[in-house]
């Protein structure tokens, strides 16, 4: 365990050093991302304005600050996806394609851990901060409109669900990698999931019927962004919390199993 922590620290330090070599990129990326995030929140703002003009208020039970809270969690998770998960896993797919995964398999540590922590983009921390900003801003608006401030239970629930969301994201990613063992040319698949993840920016009441089921159970985007926000807002019921935790556990087991099976099927460069 201690060794893994040390490995993680070394990898983080390396990424940070790499990033600091390109300081202007750091700032440039950060600014660009701020523009993008504001562009992402614009449709929500326009939608609520248009509804207010038509004499309608909440959108499927979500007020504007509540929807902003969901958007905040989306931005936070997107930062994790782009900053920690995406870069590592693009690297693995390349390793599998060229056969250099052999070198990683030879190292005296768990291969899944090594490939998952291979590379980070530290400047995504700015995105994460923006996301937290949106969550705080949304909560402040919610309280301002007469909502109850989150108690200890709500905070703990939201924290637990955020952890689940991160693990869910991670599991899905490992499953994508496992696919890369069988279908080698798959680097585009990362873009596919990233663009699918865009659906997670809206509160879950926006999805109706089959779409809601799809995004809850098959591609659990709703569990990742709407559930933590609802927990923080005090809207989530205990069965839903249980559902999210159980689902996360199942997916984690599934991804570990799939990883093992895929490794067994890996033919490496030389064989």
């Amino acid at each position: 365990m201690r060794r893994y922590l040390r490995l993680l620290r070394a990898s983080l330090r390396l990424s940070l050093l790499l990033a600091m070599q390109y300081r202007w990129d750091f700032i440039g990326h950060g600014l660009m991302q701020l523009v993008w995030t504001s562009l992402g929140v614009l449709p929500l703002w326009i939608a609520y304005q248009a509804r207010a003009a038509a004499g309608l208020s909440a959108l499927g039970g979500y007020s504007f600050p509540q929807a902003l809270t969901v958007f905040g969690f989306f931005t936070l998770l997107k930062a994790l996806l782009d900053g920690a998960i995406n870069p590592s896993l693009t690297a693995v797919v390349e390793h599998i394609r060229t056969g250099t995964l052999d070198f990683i398999l030879l190292k005296p540590a768990d291969a899944q851990f090594l490939v998952s922590t291979a590379r980070q983009e530290p400047w995504r921390i700015i995105d994460a901060a923006t996301g937290i900003g949106f969550v705080v801003f949304g909560m402040a608006g919610h309280i301002h409109q007469g909502g109850a401030p989150p108690g200890l239970g709500a905070l703990l629930g939201a924290g637990l669900l955020l952890l689940c969301a991160m693990l869910l994201l991670y599991s899905i990613w490992i499953l994508v990698i496992c696919a890369a063992f069988y279908v080698v040319r798959i680097d585009n698949l990362s873009f596919l999931f990233t663009s699918l993840f865009d659906f997670a920016r809206w509160p879950r009441s926006v999805f109706r019927g089959a779409l809601h089921v799809l995004f809850t159970f098959v591609v659990p985007l709703v569990l990742m962004t709407s559930y933590p926000a609802e927990a923080l807002l005090g809207l989530l019921r205990p069965p839903q919390l249980l559902l999210a935790v159980v689902w996360t556990g199942l997916l984690l087991c599934l991804c570990r199993l799939a990883w093992r099976r895929s490794l067994a099927a890996y033919t490496s460069a030389s064989s």
Binding site: P43, L44, A47, A50, R51, A54, L56, L59, G60, N188, L189, F191, L192, T194, S195, L196, D198, F199, R201, W202, S205, V206, F207, R208, L211
Partner: peptide, 24 residues
């Protein structure tokens, strides 16, 4: 795959259908 990654209009569509669900 590149074409499938063009999801933004669909993401927007889902939102605006819900926004206009009760009336134009």
């Amino acid at each position: 795959v590149w074409m499938l990654t063009t999801t933004l209009p669909l993401v927007s569509m889902v939102l605006w259908r819900a926004v206009a669900a009760e009336g134009p």
